[in-house]
């Protein structure tokens, strides 16, 4: 068994979903780390775009950005453009994947990052949409990555910041969301897809060593279950090493100023 942490398991599973030659609009945190990992391992031709206007950046190990707008997120980019333009490439249909995190999500993949409780008298105010709403409204295949906990996987979100299937595929269509669709939710326990007929979340594959009961116990609604549940391959040593090097940096690396021109 590998010694991967839950977040590492989730990030590595997410990275494997990204195919070479595509364009991914990644949110900061685990989605960005998954995208950078994919680019470094199996998808060297993956183009990462970030909300602050950065197209095709490469991250310096140990200097991952804390916001998608800062210099670290612009490092070695092939284009730095305006935020409106960055989003409008997406609205035009140029982004294959939209990859976001979620504070709270429901059985239709609707995401809430705005309020816990009644929006007029909220228990907790969350940071808000940022670009997440725009990503789920335009990027062709929407993927969501989050820890698998009952408080996050709720039957009905308190507020729809970023719509998934709303109450089903017809509801999504009639709302005008016709350009794209949610395709996957990646967690530390499982890989979930969406049932085509109902738009509800479906358990497709388990993280290594995790049981179906465990996943259901950490989900606040009844999950649909695929006819043949897969088990995800455990992280390889290479995946783990590369992910940790990205996060923590590597003191034996060449000086950072030289990495600018020698990056892979």
């Amino acid at each position: 068994m590998s010694d991967a942490t839950p977040v590492e398991l989730m990030t590595i599973a997410g990275s494997r979903l990204l195919r070479d030659g595509r364009v991914v609009f990644a949110g900061v945190g685990a989605p960005l780390e998954a995208s950078v990992l994919a680019k470094r391992l199996h998808a060297p031709g993956l183009t990462i775009v970030l909300e602050g206007g950065s197209i095709g950046p490469r991250m310096l190990p140990g200097r991952l950005p804390v916001s998608t707008n800062e210099m670290r997120a612009a490092h070695h980019a092939s284009m730095l453009t305006s935020i409106n333009d960055l989003f409008l490439y997406g609205q035009r249909g140029h982004y294959d994947y939209g990859f976001i995190g979620a504070g709270q999500l429901d059985q239709y993949g609707n995401v809430n990052t705005s309020f816990i409780g009644d929006p007029d008298r909220p228990k907790v105010r969350l940071p808000g949409s940022g670009g997440a709403n725009d990503i789920v409204s335009s990027c062709r295949e929407v993927m969501i990555m989050t820890r698998h906990e009952p408080r996050r996987f709720v039957e009905r979100v308190d507020f729809i910041t970023s719509p998934g299937y709303l109450t089903g595929p017809e509801a999504r269509r009639s709302a005008g969301l016709v350009r794209n669709r949610p395709v996957a939710v990646v967690t530390d326990l499982a890989l979930l897809g969406f049932d085509e007929e109902t738009g509800r979340l479906r358990l497709d594959a388990l993280q290594p060593g995790v049981t179906q009961q465990q996943v259901q116990a950490n989900t606040g609604f009844e999950l649909l279950v695929s006819d043949a549940i897969d088990e995800l391959a455990p992280p390889t040593q290479q995946e783990l090493q590369e992910l940790r090097r990205l996060r923590d940096g590597d003191p034996t690396d060449v000086p950072e100023t030289r990495k600018v021109t020698s990056a892979p």
Partner: peptide, 18 residues
């Protein structure tokens, strides 16, 4: 015009309209 905010609850809490 935009495709953003369609179907979301953000819509009714802003002056934006369908």
């Amino acid at each position: 015009p935009t495709a953003s905010m369609l179907g979301s609850d953000l819509l009714e809490r802003t002056p934006a309209v369908e």
